Amino acid sequence: MSVTVQTSLFDLADRRQLGNGAWIEVRSGWLTDADELFDELMDVIPWRAERRHMYDKVLDVPRLVSFHNLVDEPPPHPRLKQIRRRLNDAYAGELGEPFVTAGLCLYRDGDDSVAWHGDTIGRSSTEDTMVAIVSLGATRVFALRPRGGGRSLRLQHRHGDLLVMGGSCQRTWEHSIPKTSRPVGPRISIQFRPHDVR
């Protein structure tokens, strides 16, 4: 099977400069067969719960996760490699290296979330990188704010959208998926990253 990507939208990306070398890019409706992929990933991904030490306690992480090295391991679904290839065709030249991993998060409802963070594990404090996120399922707010304070952004990350954070974004900005009290269905986030970025 192949991944269907709407080429006309792929060419019309909305890139926003955030300052200090950071940028985000949104390609609305980038994955046109998102319904089918969402259903298949819900069934085949080996979702697992995690616990983390936070605030002097060990707490449940409020989402399910699954992490995959797409170079060294067989993918849990063949489309992950196909999407990775498409992203590398578009961004590896600018990034200077390929995307090699796929981290998946399942936000089951509005109580699931991820706290403010930057994907900097494995990179130096001066090294730029890129993270590409495909969203499937329910629309959720994707929030960004400058590290150390400042005006935040709240983007609606919709079913089939691609959101790319590049330049210094992981070092100089933080992002989160906040909880919501409104009724919301499940969402799968697929984060494609280069080597040594988590």
Results as ranks from 00 to 15, higher is better:
residue 18 L to G: 03
residue 64 L to W: 10
residue 161 D to T: 02
residue 115 A to T: 09
residue 25 E to D: 11
residue 109 D to G: 09
residue 159 H to D: 13
residue 154 R to D: 15
residue 17 Q to G: 13
residue 174 E to Q: 14
residue 30 W to V: 00
residue 101 T to M: 10
residue 47 W to Q: 07
residue 165 M to F: 00
residue 85 R to H: 15
residue 12 L to D: 15
residue 43 D to G: 10
residue 58 V to D: 10
residue 39 D to F: 13
residue 186 P to H: 06
residue 104 L to G: 03
residue 13 A to Y: 02
residue 164 V to A: 07
residue 179 K to E: 08
residue 100 V to S: 12
residue 98 P to C: 07
residue 12 L to F: 13
residue 115 A to W: 02
residue 136 L to S: 01
residue 99 F to V: 02
residue 167 G to K: 00
residue 12 L to G: 14
residue 135 S to N: 08
residue 168 S to Q: 11
residue 197 V to G: 01
residue 32 T to Y: 03
residue 196 D to A: 12
residue 144 L to P: 01
residue 192 F to T: 01
residue 120 T to A: 08
residue 47 W to R: 04
residue 142 F to V: 01
residue 185 G to N: 06
residue 143 A to K: 06
residue 131 V to Y: 01
residue 11 D to I: 09
residue 184 V to A: 11
residue 117 H to K: 09
residue 41 L to D: 01
residue 185 G to S: 08
residue 175 H to N: 07
residue 57 K to T: 09
residue 139 T to M: 07
residue 164 V to M: 08
residue 68 H to F: 12
residue 72 D to I: 10
residue 126 T to N: 10
residue 38 F to A: 07
residue 16 R to Y: 14
residue 95 L to Q: 06
residue 195 H to Y: 11
residue 43 D to H: 13
residue 174 E to D: 13
residue 81 K to W: 13
residue 36 E to K: 15
residue 154 R to W: 10
residue 108 R to K: 08
residue 173 W to V: 00
residue 53 H to D: 13
residue 29 G to D: 01
residue 37 L to C: 05
residue 163 L to F: 06
residue 122 G to V: 04
residue 44 V to F: 07
residue 41 L to H: 05
residue 62 P to H: 03
residue 19 G to K: 09
residue 133 I to E: 05
residue 183 P to E: 11
residue 144 L to S: 02
residue 14 D to R: 14
residue 165 M to K: 02
residue 54 M to R: 07
residue 136 L to M: 04
residue 132 A to T: 06
residue 196 D to K: 13
residue 8 S to I: 14
residue 27 R to A: 06
residue 14 D to Y: 08
residue 131 V to I: 14
residue 83 I to N: 00
residue 130 M to D: 05
residue 5 V to S: 00
residue 195 H to D: 14
residue 120 T to D: 05
residue 120 T to Y: 05
residue 121 I to P: 10
residue 123 R to Q: 14
residue 86 R to A: 12
residue 26 V to H: 07
residue 152 S to F: 02
residue 26 V to R: 12
residue 185 G to M: 09
residue 120 T to V: 14
residue 121 I to S: 15
residue 7 T to P: 14
residue 158 R to T: 09
residue 153 L to T: 10
residue 179 K to M: 04
residue 13 A to G: 14
residue 118 G to D: 04
residue 72 D to N: 15
residue 45 I to F: 07
residue 38 F to W: 08
residue 53 H to K: 15
residue 103 G to C: 10
residue 86 R to S: 10
residue 69 N to Y: 06
residue 62 P to I: 03
residue 147 R to F: 01
